[in-house]
């Protein structure tokens, strides 16, 4: 009991530090997910509708990024970009790496969702005289969006977890903050558990949000 009170005392002392770490983790994740999704949709469109050379380039991009560990992407954005004159600070480099990683996954999700729609629908749309962009916005995209939501939520949760890797390049996100606190009070099990709980809370919130959107956009049956 006493130990638990001592732990609560330490949590109270470190409350702002934990909140700052949590805030940074959330902002890194949201930025990476938002940028990655925008870029990923473009990647997905290029993979589905691009002409042959464009498809080849984008295919190479997604395969290369998806085949690279996130940690390597993080380190590369921080160290290699600076040698070619692009000076990103640790936060920017981290968000960039995660967004790039996210985009390759979202790209594949979008491609999969679009290709899963039976070709008959495009043909039907053509038959009633819709242009390609009309077909896309009112026939294909709404269906694809519903298809890809669950996997997209999955990718978003992955991004939150991958944000812990940014501690390696010195971004003071939740995990690094937790380690800083532990190095002062040696309560490793307790504080790692707390961090785990907070990560779970973030991901649970994302999952609930995904479910909410799914319900909102589902076709009433």
């Amino acid at each position: 009991m006493n130990e638990f009170l001592a732990f609560l005392d330490q949590v109270w002392l470190a409350r702002f530090v934990i909140l700052r770490g949590l805030g940074l983790t959330v902002s890194i994740s949201l930025l990476a997910i938002a940028l990655g999704s925008v870029l990923g949709v473009l990647v997905g469109l290029a993979l589905t509708y691009g002409n042959r050379p464009l498809r080849f380039v984008v295919r190479a991009y997604t395969d290369f990024i998806r085949g690279t560990p996130v940690l390597v992407l993080v380190l590369a954005s921080f160290y290699i970009l600076s040698t070619i004159g692009i000076e990103l600070n640790a936060f920017q480099a981290g968000v960039f790496a995660l967004a790039v990683f996210c985009s390759s996954h979202v790209g594949e999700i979008v491609r999969g969702a679009l290709q899963a729609i039976p070709p008959g629908q495009t043909e039907a749309a053509k038959a009633i005289g819709l242009t390609f962009s009309q077909t896309f916005t009112s026939v294909l995209w709404p269906q694809a969006l519903r298809q890809m939501l669950p996997t997209w939520v999955n990718t978003a949760a992955e991004m939150v977890k991958a944000s812990t890797l940014l501690s390696v390049i010195g971004v003071a996100e939740l995990l690094l903050r937790t380690q800083e606190i532990i190095s002062r009070n040696f309560m490793s099990l307790e504080f790692y558990f707390l961090a785990g709980l907070l990560y779970f809370a973030i991901n649970y919130a994302i999952e609930r949000f995904g479910k909410y959107v799914e319900r909102k956009v589902s076709v009433p049956s």
Partner: peptide, 10 residues
């Protein structure tokens, strides 16, 4: 920032 007493946060 994670190793007392070498480099850590107060």
């Amino acid at each position: 920032s994670t190793n007392a007493p070498w480099h850590f946060k107060s």
